Amino acid sequence: MAETDMHSHPGKSRPDLERRGLMFILSSPSGAGKTTMSRMLLTADEQVKLSVSATTRAKRPGEIDGVDYHFVSDAQFDAMIEKDEFYEWAPVFNYRYGTPKGYIRKGLKDGQDFLFDIDWQGTQQLYQKDQQDAVSVFILPPSLPELRRRLESRGQDSQSTIDDRMSRAQAEISHWAEYDYVVVNDDVDQCFVKVREILHAERRKRTRQTGLIPFVRELMG
């Protein structure tokens, strides 16, 4: 059933009930499909926005502050950590990246969904700060040989880099049981269908349907 038809009635059209947004987390080892799934989801679903991180690195040509990243100084980043303003943050190649709470929380209250393309450590931090709004999906490769084949087919990394990614992949896979959902990406299109099904189902959870109470009161007269 189409989402917009959920509350249709003969002779009367009713829009979707108000709901609280969610933080939709996708994680996977490098090459297993996390970034591909994220791009497909952002293209196919207008209700999802990519979470915009704060970063201490300099703005690159063509990047827009507040769209690509929130660009801040080291001192500003330190102050945000001190004030506990991040859901999660981590150092990456001599810079720091973090997810600001205020922007996300306002969006969630307004029914906005946010997509997080992060690793298991970032996922743990998000859960510690706001488990009720987080939904996590871990994407597994069909096999380690297939994962290596995908990494090699990119033609971007040296053999030593691929070996390093494969070593890290096994460590990352060991955290699969910490996620709400696990999907095997043996076919990109089928994997995407499963990821979208998870998102649609989570949007319909009773606890996120903030408009249910007034709706049911109206039904009961």
Rank of each mutant, 00 (worst) to 15 (best):
F116I: 09
E46H: 15
G21W: 05
R57Q: 01
M37G: 03
K109E: 14
T55I: 08
M40S: 14
D113L: 13
L199W: 12
A90L: 15
D186V: 04
N94Y: 08
V195G: 08
A2S: 05
M1R: 12
D119Q: 04
S38Y: 05
E218Q: 14
W89P: 09
M1S: 14
D164K: 14
T36D: 05
D164Y: 13
Q209H: 11
R14E: 14
A201E: 04
T161H: 08
Y179N: 08
P145Y: 10
D5A: 10
R60I: 09
F192C: 02
L115W: 02
S13P: 12
L22Q: 12
L144G: 05
A2I: 04
D133A: 14
V188F: 04
L140R: 03
R57S: 05
G62H: 03
G155V: 07
Q170N: 02
E63Q: 07
V182D: 04
W120Y: 15
L108N: 01
Q159N: 09
F116K: 05
H70A: 06
F192E: 04
D16W: 13
S13W: 10
D187W: 05
K194F: 06
V188N: 03
G155Q: 07
E202A: 13
G102D: 10
R165K: 05
M220I: 11
W120C: 15
T36A: 04
T36L: 09
S73H: 07
K205C: 12
Y87M: 00
V92W: 09
F77I: 00
Q124F: 14
Q209Y: 08
S28F: 02
F71Y: 06
Y97V: 14
Q76S: 00
D84M: 12
D65H: 08
W176C: 06
E88N: 12
V72F: 09
K129G: 03
N185S: 11
H175R: 14
I118H: 00
R154Q: 09
A58P: 08
A177L: 11
M23N: 09
T99I: 01
A58Q: 11
Y127I: 11
D74I: 13
R149M: 00
L108R: 03
R154E: 04
F93Y: 00
E218Y: 12
S143P: 01
D157H: 06
H9N: 12
H7K: 07
I25G: 00
K101N: 05
T35R: 12
E178T: 02
F215A: 14
R39A: 05
S143D: 00
N94P: 07
R20V: 06
M6P: 04
P214W: 15
A201Y: 03
T55K: 01
L22T: 02
R39G: 06
K205Y: 11
P61V: 08
Y127R: 10
G107W: 09
E172V: 15
S136K: 01
G66W: 01
W120N: 15
G33P: 08
G33L: 03
Y97I: 11
G155L: 10
I162Y: 01
